[in-house]
């Protein structure tokens, strides 16, 4: 009886082992062609298409210039103009932005461009013109006479996905 149990156990083991051994794992490998990965880039050129003349400002004076912003790099982009420009060193001096359709101040529109806010998405490699208006308040005090200021506008640009 014992031999019978041993034989039976052996058969079970062999069956299980054989079943495992009877299963073969098939695998195959394939390789793709070598591909290089390169990070994208973004750069912005900010220049004056028409620089404003800001000398001898009197109360109520308004002067304009046109800034030219050109993108290069990958993907689409947005731009942002600052509210802080250095104008505050002269009491009553302010800077505002509107859109422009060309390089001359005659192309300035009345459509405001909000400061400290990202613009709508622009096409890759595109150029945008922005009208910069500098004004001295009509109530600027007499103490402002001969006061100097330096207007420095730092334009920010950021990337956007291509789709």
């Amino acid at each position: 009886m014992r031999r019978l149990w041993i034989a039976l156990a052996t058969a079970v083991v062999l069956t299980l082992a054989g079943g495992t051994a009877a299963f073969a794992a098939w695998s195959r490998t394939a390789s793709t062609a070598a591909t290089s990965l390169t990070a994208g880039d973004i750069s912005l050129s900010a220049t004056w298409a028409t620089a404003p003349t800001l000398t001898a400002l009197t109360p109520g004076a308004t002067r304009q210039g046109v800034a030219k912003l050109t993108h290069s790099g990958n993907g689409r982009w947005q731009y942002q103009l600052p509210s802080s420009t250095g104008a505050s060193t002269m009491s009553g001096l302010t800077v505002a932005y509107t859109t422009a359709t060309g390089t001359a101040t005659s192309s300035c529109t009345t459509t405001a461009v909000a400061a400290d806010a990202w613009s709508a998405t622009q096409a890759n490699g595109s150029t945008v013109y922005v009208c910069v208006t500098v004004s001295l308040s009509t109530t600027a005090p007499s103490t402002v006479q001969s006061t100097p200021a330096s207007i420095a506008i730092v334009v920010q640009a950021r990337n956007q996905p291509t789709n």
Partner: peptide, 14 residues
């Protein structure tokens, strides 16, 4: 990715 570019500074005087 954000980059900045500064317009040439303009001197103002009252």
């Amino acid at each position: 990715w954000t980059v900045g570019s500064t317009l040439p500074t303009v001197a103002a005087a009252a």
